[in-house]
């Protein structure tokens, strides 16, 4: 399922920690293999990606979003 999400990057402190994207409407996505440029808490971004239903993770914080492309917003 391809989609586009605007929101803020957060580091979630579950287990050793996970990169998450919290959308502007409050939904939390776990970022699957995010590029190093997205490893920055507080970054405001627009991410294009795909929800991976076939992937599980230890973070379990919400749908797993695989990043296809992204754009840093001002």
């Amino acid at each position: 399922m391809s989609m586009q999400v605007e929101g803020t990057i957060e580091r979630k402190g579950l287990g050793p920690g996970t990169w998450a994207l919290v959308s502007n409407d409050g939904k939390t996505y776990e970022l699957h293999n995010p590029p190093a440029d997205l490893h920055k808490a507080g970054l405001n971004v627009k991410v294009k990606g795909e929800i991976r239903e076939d992937i599980m993770s230890f973070a379990m914080i919400g749908p797993i979003l695989e990043v296809k492309s992204f754009e840093v917003l001002g």
Binding site: T18, N33, R52, D54, I55, M56, S57, F58, A59
Partner: peptide, 13 residues
């Protein structure tokens, strides 16, 4: 079954 970034596919699990 989970990679260094913490995700893994259902087939492996």
């Amino acid at each position: 079954v989970l990679s260094s970034s913490g995700g893994g596919n259902i087939a492996d699990i």
